[in-house]
Amino acid sequence: MKYALFLGCKIPSRLPAYEASTRAVLAHLGVTLVDLEFTCCGYPARNVSRDGFVVSAARNLALAERAGLDVLTPCTCCLGTLRHAQVLLDEDAPLRSRVAQALAADGLAWSGKAAVEHVLPLLARLIGTNKGATVPAAAVSVPRTGLRVAAQYGCHALRPANVARFDNPMAPTIFETLIRATGATPVDWPRRLDCCGDPLHEGNPPLAEHMTRAKIADALASGAEVLCTACPHCHLRFDAVQSGAPDPSLRTLLYTQLLGQAMGLPAKSLGL
């Protein structure tokens, strides 16, 4: 099994542990990751130029297409953006031809062949979790028994569902299933599907902080020991808001780290 790994902008510079743990876990499960010369997924451009956003995204999709690979990303925002671009390219013919022209300058073309997937569904398939399974997956050698984990889904993995194609946007289960597969216990928390607040950080910091703190308080009140993330934006957001506090009380952990621990991979290879 082989994918082009799309790390996006945040992971290499701000959250290298996510790259390390993703590579470690997937290597352990026999997945080959190929690095292409990807650029920004296009998300920041959406506020300025619809075409600019789609061109940025399509360039990456076209690179993967040329390499004959599907795209795998650990970032839910990149997932959402790349898939969103696919939808727009699919439904808007004039846009498609404008983008084709822009890509042609680089000798690239988009036809929609390269699919985009997030790490979580791939892991769910690889470790063979079944819905509602309560026993750790076969790949797990050091079950994280007793650890109470709150799953932070990330908006752009879930919604809009026709674009994200990830899980039921109103009642997703994949993350909890994956947590159970490590032997840990998923926590049901009222704000689990809420926005982490990160997108408001630039424009309205106090409101963003209000949102983030509400989530942290909710997870804590629901008995979580660990907030498990699958998106660098969410992860960094929770860490940033808690870093000012004297004692960050809700530990954040990337899902790839949690799974890596449960597989018995060395902590260093997981960026821990």
Partner: peptide, 20 residues
Amino acid sequence: LLGALERVMAARGVRRRHLS
């Protein structure tokens, strides 16, 4: 009610195609 029904569907393995 909507949230509960969606949870029902998820728990029973009904595959949903939202916004389609």
